[in-house]
Amino acid sequence: MLTIGCHLSSSKGYFAMGKEAVNIDANTFQFFTRNPRGTRAKAMNPDDVNKFLAYAGEHQINRILAHAPYTLNACSADEHLRILARDTMKDDLERMEYTPGNCYNFHPGSHVKQGVEIGIQYISDMLNQILTPKLHTTVLLETMSGKGSEVGKEFEELREILDRVTLQEHMGVCLDTCHVWDAGYDIRNDLDGVLHQFDQVIGLSKLKAIHLNDSLNALGSHKDRHAKIGEGFIGAEALKRIVTHPLLKDLPFYLETPNDLPGYAKEIAMMRNAG
């Protein structure tokens, strides 16, 4: 069965997100761990989490994905901002222990003219500081579009980060369809070729999640503008091929399209009918 969901607001808690997911025929979802444009986080509510875990078990909700706030930059030129990213992610991973066995996704960051090599070193250093053997969460590096000085626009950059992390068993990759398209990977006309390249560079065993988005921009634009399914340059048919591809169909898919809940419900139905 296709595992698919969308991005939901965490402001009302885990149980409310679970109910929203079921109402739109989703069996997973993504959420921000805290204010996506800041660092503030609500206190954890164990009762709410326990209600969600019971509800999730009843409704086969699994493999939820937490997303770090956009403001974090693990490879900033400013040491204070790097420390903020490290401490925030460390706290997020501690909070994720309330819902063990899931994933935590983050944007690698922007090296801000320091160079990709320095950016990669800062990111891997941070990961080595926050990952512990007892962790029950898999941390995912997200593929990026290459806007500005983003690290992660090429598979090789993500591979370099992974190679420098000691506890690699706690690491994986989240492939964002809009981002890889904008970075220049032609998933519309050469999906098999892109997956082969990913496998050769990173390894498909490291691919743990997919952000399913169309793109408002042409291939290789490095712009990062998400579009609703079928309203962008990738197109609905290409995205349907992704969710039904033999190498991908068992992964969880998370819609990040500019939508409301009824819009997400339509996209989920579209993808469920793709097979």
Rank of each mutant, 00 (worst) to 15 (best):
H80Q: 15
I234P: 08
N217A: 03
D87I: 09
N27L: 09
L167G: 02
F15K: 04
M270E: 12
N213T: 08
L81A: 03
G13E: 03
V243P: 03
R159T: 05
D214A: 08
M17P: 00
Q60S: 14
T88G: 00
M89S: 06
P246S: 05
M1S: 10
S124V: 08
T28M: 00
S11C: 05
N128H: 09
P46V: 12
H59N: 15
D92C: 10
D190T: 14
Q60V: 03
Q129V: 00
E160I: 01
E237W: 01
K147I: 13
V151T: 08
G220Q: 08
D190N: 15
L195F: 12
M96V: 01
N259L: 07
G38I: 11
M44C: 12
I123F: 05
I4Q: 01
K19A: 10
H179R: 11
G13Q: 03
L212A: 04
D48S: 07
Y98R: 00
Y264C: 06
C178D: 03
D199S: 10
L248P: 11
H196R: 13
L93N: 05
A66M: 08
V180C: 12
S124W: 04
N217S: 10
Q60W: 00
V151M: 06
L167E: 08
T244S: 12
K90S: 14
D125M: 07
Y14N: 02
V116W: 01
L65N: 09
D250K: 14
L239D: 05
R86K: 15
D190I: 14
L141Y: 00
K223L: 13
H67V: 12
R225W: 10
F155L: 09
G230V: 08
F253R: 04
L239C: 09
T137K: 02
L81F: 14
T132R: 04
I187C: 07
G230S: 12
A269M: 02
G148N: 01
